[in-house]
Design a protein around this nucleic acid. Sequence first.
DNA 1: GTGAAAGCGCTAACAT
DNA 2: ATGTTAGCGCTTTCAC
Lengths: 337, 337
Amino acid sequence: MKSAKRPVRMADIARAAGVSVMMVSRAYRDGGSVSEEKRAHILRIAEEMGYVFDATAANLRLNRTGFVAVTVPSINNANFADTVRALGDALAREGLQILLANTEYDPDAEARLLDQLLRRKPEALVVTGGDHGEQARKLLQRAGVPVVEIWDLPAAPIGHAVGFSNSDAMVDLVGHFARAGYRRLAFIGGETPFDSRGRDRRAGFIRGVAQHGLGPPRLVDAGEVPVSMSAGAGALAQLLAQYPDTDAVLCVSDLVAFGAMTEAQRRGLRIPQDLAFGGFGNFEIGRVSLPQITTVEVSAAQIGARAARLVLDLLADPARAPARIDMQPYVIARGSS
Amino acid sequence: MKSAKRPVRMADIARAAGVSVMMVSRAYRDGGSVSEEKRAHILRIAEEMGYVFDATAANLRLNRTGFVAVTVPSINNANFADTVRALGDALAREGLQILLANTEYDPDAEARLLDQLLRRKPEALVVTGGDHGEQARKLLQRAGVPVVEIWDLPAAPIGHAVGFSNSDAMVDLVGHFARAGYRRLAFIGGETPFDSRGRDRRAGFIRGVAQHGLGPPRLVDAGEVPVSMSAGAGALAQLLAQYPDTDAVLCVSDLVAFGAMTEAQRRGLRIPQDLAFGGFGNFEIGRVSLPQITTVEVSAAQIGARAARLVLDLLADPARAPARIDMQPYVIARGSS
DNA sequence: GTGAAAGCGCTAACAT
DNA sequence: ATGTTAGCGCTTTCAC
């Protein structure tokens, strides 16, 4: 029975191994300046004594924490989860650890969380979206470390950006439907003020419809973000009541599209003959549903991977890194249209 | 144009405010031992100078990091994401920050990640699953801080547990189908060795089928975890070839059930008349799909919330906390059966 | 290859 | 209410 009263520190290992504290420190870092024999000896003793390296102390001394702070509006979204996973994997390979925070689409929460995160002295910040409250913006600007905005592509990013124009992508999707012969398009999306991606997609819809001369835009509110499948189902009911002759419904995400689609099927409508559907984000649901959903591929995982590489580049050489990386989404045509 | 050459520290604020460093420290912590006037003055100057409190230094001195390490097999799973979110929210309210790591259902990765996490000196560990590799188990046992296993309910947890018996829950689901008159049940699930939840659910299926005298269990492998919707679709094809007279398919999760269900529909089968389906986990997809999916509610968010409360209790008083908390899942009957 | 001293930025403990 | 001293556990010097 070992007592965990006082945790073991390097000095304890040093004493037990008959070396100086510095040698223990070296054994844990360089391979070079310690004889391989002694190094193995030290590490074995440390293992026996249950030593756990104290990163907190090392961080203070090194003035490097190995943290990268990341904010997402919602972790409960397969796309953001993909991004975070790819980002985390790539950063972990370089010994960096993500500090994740959920803003819940709330600008005040974002500012509060950024304030907390900055106290941990992250070496870089990766924030979802290019739209921030005044306070959050200020914190990001004076952070003193690289800032990467993802999932949007602001004209003038605070630091750097890895994303795409949600608006342009939706214009492309409208174009796809227009070319396929659909004329009476409607859009289902959320109305939350701080969801810039949802807002941009709606703006893209309006722009696309105008470009193709499809008359005044038919817009249906799906309620609060994060917009769910169920919200999509509810919104379809409203849409059919308001615009009964609609021939194609574009949705702010595949999840909403799926919900709307099932509601249409519940009402006996045939898809796409009676009503066509388009989604956004290429979620798994759209590849498995019946019919599969026409969507916009946004490469969520690649956004994370690319942001990770950008962060690593910025840490290596802040000067030689691109300011804006466009991930160029594209339409995937499927059975729903 | 301010130079961010050397970051501002407390000493800089102290000098500018004409007080000692301790007063600045106090201004940031107690409300009590600083006059409200001076406190406001200090904080204003700090704000003007762009000071950011250094948690790293405070943590070293206080021997408290405010971190809680959390491992999940996959963040890209709505259930685990719900758990992590609830856990994180509740902990954040007490000033604790989650350090999240993905094990990807790999015991070696789990051990490696735990080793990394422990160096950050978390104040508690929350790990998904009650099944660990030898190395991971050792690290957890000697961690020296509270350990909470979630989503399983081991007979003898390493420290504490918040979860449920995946096996018993599946027995209940089998019982539900048996009572509804189904006699030729099959199970679709993954075969990955270190997914103890999937394994327990399959074991529960086998046990349930035996209890109800439904003949030898019909098991179909859905491949690698995390088991996806698409894998469910593929597995259904195999199932129909191998056991064509099956009348009900129970799946390791709602996602798999949905995939299998769409494949059945693609083949023109009516649900539940020709083939019934059962899922697990009460994912949103099962509430929106057509038909909705009979499932087992496991209260993912509540697992996180309850684990958070347990961690907080353990930090306050390690003695007075329950060892095992059973979240008691229950069957939700829907249109797929 | 190895060790001694100094110090990273903060706060507990003890002054006053 | 406020200041001084010491030190958290590690690593960067700079010796040898």
